[in-house]
């Protein structure tokens, strides 16, 4: 009995050892690529939410319980430099947290948002990332596809551009957003919810509002710290 226990343990241990050994090598190969992908993704998101800006340093501030990450951006235009900020906002949606990168200018007007992580229901909440493809299947098959230089940005993210994040953002049920709705909705500082996924829309909206407020606090604290360091 004891011998058999020993043998079983040995074999199990050996299997695990070999498995882990092999995996650590696979990890060593793939890890740099994964890291590069993630950096790339973050840079792409930053370029999307702060279009045309030079991204400055990344800062983290401990506001409340969680860490708040934000970036500063600058754009030279005429004789003044416009300042802008990008921050990461997070709120739980239906399944798991929805993480959004938001770019705002100094007044709090949203320059662009990019949803970097979500696990909402496909077909409903996951449509936050749905982009209307310019080509239809038949055009692709028959070879008459338009040359799309870049993928169109998802309408859900697109509609936040121009919204004032410092004020309350309203949610309207107008169905899928399109360019013609922009002026009407911006007048009311609102966005259109995804049909059947109002909760998801609300989570993104709330996270932007809370994130904006947190950004204000973080910036003030940073200014104070700078001043203290200057003295």
């Amino acid at each position: 009995m004891n011998a058999s226990i020993l043998r079983s343990t040995l074999i199990l241990g050996l299997t695990s050892f070999i498995a882990t050994f092999a995996l650590s090598h696979i990890k060593a190969i793939t890890y740099p690529v994964i890291q590069k992908q993630e950096r790339q993704k973050q840079e792409n998101a930053l370029a999307l939410v702060l279009p045309g800006y030079t991204i400055g340093e990344e800062r983290t501030a401990a506001v409340g319980r969680a860490n708040f990450t934000y970036w500063t951006g600058q754009k030279a235009g005429g004789n003044t430099t416009a300042k802008a900020y990008a921050f990461i906002a997070e709120k739980p949606g239906y399944s798991g947290a929805i993480r959004t990168m938001v770019g705002v200018d100094e007044k709090g007007t949203v320059l662009g948002i990019s949803i970097i992580r979500q696990s909402e229901t496909p077909g409903l909440g996951a449509r936050v990332l749905e982009a209307a493809s310019r080509n239809t299947f038949f055009q692709v098959v028959t070879g008459r596809a338009h040359e799309t230089g870049e993928e169109p940005s998802p309408w859900f993210q697109e509609q936040f551009r121009g919204v004032n994040a410092a004020a309350k953002i309203a949610i309207f049920k107008k169905g899928d957003w399109n360019e013609t709705m922009r002026d009407e909705l911006l007048l009311k500082n609102g966005v259109s919810a995804i049909t059947g996924a109002t909760i998801t829309t609300k989570a993104v909206k709330d996270s932007i509002e809370v994130g904006m407020a947190t950004l204000r606090i973080a910036l003030e604290e940073h200014a104070k710290a700078q001043e203290a360091a200057g003295k």
Partner: peptide
């Protein structure tokens, strides 16, 4: 697996 991905890790 979902527990590790649901954002429970960094809250209290």
């Amino acid at each position: 697996v979902l527990n590790t991905e649901a954002g429970f890790l960094n809250g209290n």
